[in-house]
């Protein structure tokens, strides 16, 4: 059987088992922010993991879209971690998380305007220069739209990654969540994506809150998101895909089964 390229997010509750049993997983993604501290026990664990699996470093702390200057400590620690584990990809989100030194630790959307495109693309270029490598930028889920936005999210996303000349992390679940929350066709979004820039795909489970869908990463991937993923696989080809599960983290087996399910859809649609 052909091997798929669908991995899982590394969660702390699974680390000991993964180190001991070394299950067959094509690659792992880690939340880089949790492993930045040099000589910490957490980074110590990660170095053991890095000896066994290819890694993708995924962050929330860059605050790419913030009007605050970049956090110097964050970048130097991230650069040092990159040098130590040699990840296949380094990613963060198309959003802002901090302002005036206050950090929300959440992903807050940007207004979709020409001046935001110029500013954010400049910030991504600066981040790439600081890290001396390509970074990969992910679309976030959103629960509101700003009045000042002058274009669709996909026009904004595409313009930013083109102008920044960076990679793109396509979160299929986030597209679906935002499509339902803002009443657009997720396929319009998908078809507008610059396929050649897609470096990775994310899948996750949302929560239906009645008035809106919330991206909680606390459940199985839903049927409509699997359908959208099949479309994405057809469009972008055999791109590394990842299951994100952060809240109510299940047993490793369930996570791996979810990755295998993604894998079979991927193989079926990219054959």
């Amino acid at each position: 059987m052909k091997e798929h390229s669908c991995g899982i997010g590394l969660r702390f509750e699974h680390i000991d088992r993964i180190l001991k049993e070394q299950p067959n997983i094509p690659w792992l993604e880690v939340l880089s922010d949790n492993y930045l501290n040099p000589n910490s026990v957490q980074q110590d664990y990660l170095l053991s993991i890095a000896e066994l699996y290819p890694l993708s470093l995924h962050g929330v702390g860059m605050s790419i879209g913030s009007v605050d200057p970049f956090n110097e400590d964050y970048f130097s620690l991230l650069k040092a971690l990159i040098d130590r584990v040699n990840p296949e990809r380094v990613s963060d989100h198309l959003c802002w998380t901090a302002v005036h030194g206050m950090v929300t630790h959440d992903l807050i959307p940007l207004p979709y305007t020409d001046e935001t495109i110029r500013y954010v693309a400049g910030r991504i270029r600066e981040a790439q220069e600081r890290l001396e490598r390509e970074i990969v930028i992910e679309n976030v889920s959103s629960y509101l739209q700003y009045k000042q936005s002058a274009m669709t999210e996909w026009e904004f996303f595409t313009a930013v990654v083109e102008e920044a000349d960076c990679g793109l992390l396509l979160d299929v679940n986030n597209i679906y969540v935002s499509a339902m929350n803002h009443n657009f066709d997720p396929l319009d979004y998908l078809h507008a994506i610059p396929t050649k820039r897609v470096r990775q795909i994310h899948l996750a489970g949302y929560e239906d809150r009645g008035t809106h869908l919330l991206d909680t990463h606390g459940n199985h991937v839903t049927e409509p998101v699997w359908d959208l993923y099949a479309h994405a696989a057809k469009q972008v080809g055999n791109i590394p895909t990842l299951i994100e599960w952060d809240n109510d983290v299940p047993e490793l087996e369930i996570l791996l089964a979810e990755a295998d399910k993604a894998g079979s859809i991927q193989l079926e649609h990219t054959a």
Partner: peptide
């Protein structure tokens, strides 16, 4: 951009002070 600075300032007031009025004016 100045408008982005203002938007983020107003947003943080909602998040950390529960003053939602100003940012709500910018939201559909």
């Amino acid at each position: 951009p100045e408008s982005l600075k203002q938007l983020q300032t107003h947003f943080s007031e909602a998040v950390f002070s529960d003053q939602r009025g100003l940012i709500a004016e910018s939201v559909m």
